[in-house]
Design a protein around this nucleic acid. Structure first.
Length: 555
RNA sequence: AGUUCGAUGGUGUAACGGUAGCACCACAGACUCUGACUCUGUUAGUCUAGGUUCGAAUCCUAGUCGGACUACCA
């Protein structure tokens, strides 16, 4: 019972806060996406963190759409974000929008103007940039910095009323143009944008900047722990400055390092390029690191949550091995998927001593990891499809499969011995001839034989067909964003291999969209949404571990 | 260069002044009607230099290396 689970740094902060009675021990977090794109695995980490922390400490987690920029945001994204979060298995306390606070935020701005802490600036963006100074040199005050409170009030009201064009005026906080933190050199609070907003419509033509919206929104919702990624750490003094000057609920911001993954890219800009340049087929392409892509790929939500849990949270730079995600995926799929037989690269196997036209039905366990999964029936005949890889003319020493003179077991059926084979004009093996041992029948094997190899098969007469899409990592280098040149030069040309016809056991033809199975000795697959009633399409989620492949590579 | 955050095996993460642990990967073996799963074992780490201390991954000082910040984006 007393197994002390170590805490991450955020849990430590929260537990200390609870201990000290801060906000009466109340914990309230939020997940604040901007509805301008699709969620990816990085967001998944943040979701698991924010919702997970709330759950662990009996708190609440809001979903807040940070929609302060009408130029980039669309309702379409709101829906995809919501369904991604739900699919991950989380339920938000409230669905909220920063745009719902526009009136309140405006009033906060007026408050600051009245306190002499904000002013309307007529400078252009270029002028402002030139007065900003640099990392090493202080900035200079704007000529409009000393406008009177009354004038600022009037001007700001006129800005709101639509008297000015985009870019003509801004509202700025009056802090310190020489501050070493550039964000505190009189940051913009409001800009003019005569644009239609996906929720507030045309009611507003001035929109708050992130820095003037985020902390106050947290505060309005009485969020206790506002958790964001490390690149916002420089914003924290500003976050606190607004809350302090406004004298509102003191939400606190904490930062963690965003999680990176090998063999992919995560920035919205890069992902957008992949989509626009058609390197992938949309945001939910199974190769994309988006939540919708991973869902379509067949990654279970449980696996993603487990992954987020396993990699934890810290403040140091990191790049997590994709292999760890795949491990989590396999770990879960192993427990829940039924085993089925499918032949992806077929050659024909003929059992010369098996009666023509005879059919036998074998019963096969669905999932040895889960006794409750039951069993199914598989028809067996004289002619079977087997995997090309499972036969070799000349077998190397540790090859446990078919070769002239060698024996294997046909999974759930008989032990067979290879006698001969046929090749076509190009030298490709077309047919393998074997004899079966009737007394080795699965379930009541009296042969006394032990064979090292077991292979899967599908009856030629009963096989159904399907398409398989074999996905592999999107990039051929582990950190494409940090290579020389364009990251797109490092796209893996073999990230998708389509096999138009594979043979599947009859039972599998009943599979429905989204179903997940294990193709025995091959990998985990799921039914793709492109499937039609007369054509099933299987996505390869992830391969099985393959020690034989490693063995071969060494040789 | 200024500010700021960080540095523990190949990767991710613990150890809160007192035995450097866990997971993934890799490797070796056992088991196997999936070369899967499972099980056992092995390799491998505290950025550097000083200091404080009986004792330092942990505290202090200096350095090194890496990241972030100069959008009317979030």
């Amino acid at each position: 019972m007393s197994e002390e689970k170590s805490l991450n740094f955020l849990e430590e902060i929260i537990e200390n806060d609870i201990k000290s009675g801060l906000h009466n021990g109340r914990v309230h977090t939020r997940f604040p996406p901007e509805p301008n794109g699709y969620l990816h695995i990085g967001h998944a980490s943040s979701i698991c963190l924010n919702f997970g922390l709330a759950k662990k400490y009996n708190g609440k987690c809001n979903l807040r759409f940070d929609d302060t920029n009408p130029s980039t945001e669309e309702a379409e994204y709101v829906n995809s974000i919501k369904s991604d979060i739900e699919w991950l298995g989380f339920q938000w306390h409230k669905e909220l929008y920063t745009s719902d606070y526009f009136e309140q935020l405006h009033d906060y701005a007026v408050t600051l103007i009245k306190k002499g802490l904000a002013y309307v600036d007529d400078s252009t963006a270029e002028q402002m940039a030139s007065m900003k100074g640099t990392l090493n040199t202080p900035g200079t005050d704007s000529p409009f910095r000393s406008r009177s409170i009354e004038e600022n009030l009037t001007l700001f009201a006129e800005m709101r009323a639509g008297k000015y064009k985009d870019g003509e005026k801004t509202l700025r906080a009056k802090i310190d143009m020489a501050h070493p933190n550039l964000l505190l050199r009189d940051p913009l609070m409001y800009r003019i944008k005569h644009e239609h907003h996906h929720r507030s419509g045309d009611k507003w033509c001035i929109y708050p900047m992130y820095d003037f919206a985020h902390g106050q929104s947290d505060s309005i919702e009485e969020v206790t722990h506002s958790i964001c990624t490390l690149e916002f750490i420089h914003h924290r003094p500003l976050y606190n400055w607004f809350i302090e000057k406004l004298e509102i609920f003191p939400s606190k911001q904490y930062e963690f390092a965003r999680r990176n993954l090998t063999y992919t890219v995560m920035s919205k800009r890069k992902l957008l390029q992949l989509v626009n340049d058609k390197h992938v087929n949309g945001w939910n392409d199974p190769r994309m690191p988006t939540i919708s892509g991973m869902r379509r790929r067949g990654y279970p939500a449980e696996a993603i949550r487990n992954f987020a849990d396993t990699i934890g949270v810290a403040k140091r730079e990191n790049i997590v091995d994709l292999g760890l995600l795949e491990f989590c995926v396999r770990e879960h799929l192993n427990k829940v998927t039924n085993r089925v037989m499918a032949v992806l690269d077929p050659i024909k196997l003929v059992l010369t001593n098996y009666p023509d036209g005879q059919t036998e039905v074998f019963e096969a366990e669905n999932n040895p990891e889960d006794p409750a999964s039951g069993s199914r029936e598989i028809p067996f005949e004289k002619e079977l499809w087997i995997e090309r890889d499972d036969f070799m003319e000349e077998a190397p020493k540790k090859y446990f499969r078919l070769a002239p003179g060698k024996m294997v077991r046909l999974k759930s059926a008989y032990i067979i011995q290879c006698d001969s084979f046929e090749k076509d004009a190009d030298g490709n093996v077309t047919t393998v001839y074997c004899t079966y041992l009737p007394e080795s029948r699965s379930g009541n094997d009296t042969s006394g034989l032990k064979v090292k190899g077991t292979i899967h098969w599908v009856s030629v007469a009963h096989a159904h067909t399907a398409e398989a899409r074999l996905y592999d990592r999107l990039f051929s280098v582990s950190d494409p964003a940090n290579e020389d040149g364009d990251f797109k030069d490092y796209i893996n040309p073999d990230s998708l291999r389509t096999i138009s016809t594979i043979y599947i056991e009859p039972e599998l033809s009943k599979a429905k969209n989204g179903d997940k199975v294990q193709f025995m000795r091959n990998g985990y697959f799921c039914v793709d949404s492109d499937s039609t009633p007369d054509k099933l399409i299987f996505n390869r989620t992830v391969t099985l571990r393959d020690n034989w492949a490693k063995e071969q590579k060494k040789a």
